[in-house]
Design a binder for these strands. Sequence first.
DNA 1: TCTATTGGGGAACGATCGTTTCCAAATTAA
DNA 2: TTAATTTGGAAACGATCGTTCCCCAATAGA
Lengths: 202, 202
Amino acid sequence: MDINTATRPPGRPREFEIEEALDKAVIVFSERGYHAASISELKDAMGLAAGSLYKAFKDKKAIFLASFDRYKQVRNAVLEQELAQGINGRDRVSRMLRFYAEASHGENGRRGCLVVGTAIELAVYDAEAAERVDRSMGRSEALFETLIREGQADGSIAQAIDPGATARLLLSVTQGLRVLGKTGPNRDRAFSVVDTAMKLLD
Amino acid sequence: MDINTATRPPGRPREFEIEEALDKAVIVFSERGYHAASISELKDAMGLAAGSLYKAFKDKKAIFLASFDRYKQVRNAVLEQELAQGINGRDRVSRMLRFYAEASHGENGRRGCLVVGTAIELAVYDAEAAERVDRSMGRSEALFETLIREGQADGSIAQAIDPGATARLLLSVTQGLRVLGKTGPNRDRAFSVVDTAMKLLD
DNA sequence: TCTATTGGGGAACGATCGTTTCCAAATTAA
DNA sequence: TTAATTTGGAAACGATCGTTCCCCAATAGA
């Protein structure tokens, strides 16, 4: 009888998609930051009443952390897709750097990175936020290192370079690009940084 | 009769040093950020009553901008002194990078950089803040470029490298270090980034 | 049909925000 | 001395903050 056989919990069903609402919240938190983003702004952007917001999330911090996780999920998916197209280690490193450069200019740059924003605004006095930032940074660093080792294995990256140290440098470059992108350098300047960084792999 | 012959303006003299108070405000703004730093916290840290604060400064933003300027003044003086000890262009680039690495770990790292914080939290919707950030970033980039050209002139840096592009990269690295420093990598990791970046000058 | 449960939405809450006001104290100029 | 001016400091202000409450709607299970 029932087309949807998945059991539904009792009570009135939610009328909005959590992930769609979070995508809107991500924009507000990215542009304004955690403290400057008010519940009033968030509920308007998410298209919800305050009461509904607080039924879906415990408090403002929970909205933020859920937004952070959603942001990471979406960005990671795009990056993964980008890396899958790389032809060797060096190309994948280049694609990853360009992925950040693309996000660090123009409107995207102005909007900013939620990881960087969290590191700056929240990590110092909120353990949960700090842990998420650390995990995100750690994964990026590890990914750079993996790609570099792949490049050394396939011959596209020089054997002489130190994968760990170079990965840390590239992580610094990407986070720095995100900061510079906030006051909006043009596209060429962001990509010139990528080109210069790639010379480290020779 | 009067030991201090400098004419004093009418009215009760101020009982505190503006710059000493600003140094305290810099700490609060750096650790907490603009929005999370309340007037209550600021007045406690600065040792002033709210009324006195508002006689010295127009509003919260004026306190912040004055703190920003004080921060830049102090940091620039320290950096200048550091660079004066450099023996050639390459050494001065290295000293400048180490100056940032030193500020990007441990307690200083956790405290954070007021320029980066301003870029992330304020620059998007406050023109005065954005202009200060832009000017600060522009000067750092120009300084890196100058030092690189000096190194090329004195033979300590390879002629083949592009001073402008490399300066932009090094600026990205320093700003990135400041972000990473917020969640506190240890000293060695910060300095390994410097060592790796210096390879770009060979 | 009745009960239990959950969501939607708006009104209301106490707390805290940045700011102003007020009065006493300290100084200069007349 | 007196008037004008400015600071120190505490108290008070309106606005906005994040959050809760309340009432109605919508659903599941009995």
